[in-house]
Amino acid sequence: MIKITFPDGAVKEYNAGITAQEIAESISPRLAKEVLACSVNEEVRELNYPIYEDATLKLHKWEDDEAKHAFWHTSAHLLAEALQELYPGIQFGIGPAIENGFYYDVLLPEGQVIKEGDFDTISNKMTELARLGEPLVKKQIAKQDALDFFKEHGQTLKLELINELADGTISTYTQGPFTDLCRGPHLVSTEAIKAVKVTAVSAAFWRGDAKRETLTRVYGISFPKK
């Protein structure tokens, strides 16, 4: 049995290996529906992260910044998944959550551009994919394996990022056909993303370096409710 300490100081015992999702369900079905992420010992984790030792636990609903961050981070991956389907051959840079929403920097195949007129198509594809409720699966991966994987998939920008990481610290997240180099944290699936819209597009230098490739930065916003 492990001891979980809640923010109000209450301590409850659970079986080792329990997840925040299960703990939320044991508290109330309403809470289980609204919770999006959690903090275990002050570190933000997915709701399906198994807890094996005594820990402090904070459950994050939409109102918490941690929840929004994970939500928009997963939305960035959703955006990438949609773009991968719509623009075969596309290359991915970095796609973080930001203060209000998220973006993904991409290198489009030769001759392709994303204009305002394309926003609806991309938004609709994202909505369609989100409905599939694909789970996000985290995998720890060896550095060489990561390099091989992303090289095979033609993701040369990712190779640069992997080269800067230490072996043993690298992980990927996969939802459906899309895999990204990522540390997390994320939602457990894309199902919670009920409303999503691409809002803007701009240009950005890869690594912020004016001498490097110019990428297309696609901005989006998403919410758990329409």
């Binding site: 409303a195 999503v196 819209k197 916003i221 758990p224 409710k225």
Partner: peptide, 10 residues
């Protein structure tokens, strides 16, 4: 939520 956000953006 999305609708309100888009109105806010406008």
């Amino acid at each position: 939520m999305l609708d309100e956000y888009l109105v806010m953006l406008e």
